[in-house]
Amino acid sequence: MSEYLPVLVTLGAVLVLVAALYVMAAVTATARSALDVVPFAGGLPPAQHAFSRFHVRWYPVTMVFLAFDMEMIFMYPWTLVVSRVGPAAVIEMFVFLGILVAAVVYAWREGALRWT
């Protein structure tokens, strides 16, 4: 765990710097208090809150992405053992990846990767 000690020190340092920046900006800012504004969309006042159920048209891509993202969890440790396990490791991994790619091709043909 001691190898993470420098990481913690770095994290502390950068957090201190961020805080220092805010303090400095509070001192140097021309106006201390924040300016209350309406959201900008061209100068006319908004009619509604922007927080809304956003139409995520690329939703199918997120599903395909999740499948591959899980696959990465296997792939990171796999890199360490390729030469130890030998050709079997490579074959198994790439057969697995091949299946996933086949699924991507299917999703692509179904139009999942395109939304306009």
């Binding site: 969309a41 061209g42 100068g43 006319l44 908004p46 009619a47 509604q48 922007a50 809304s52 159920r53 956003f54 139409h55």
Partner: peptide
């Protein structure tokens, strides 16, 4: 889905 009325510009 939610429909947002937005005025863009000027």
């Amino acid at each position: 889905l939610d429909q947002l009325q937005v005025t863009l510009g000027p």
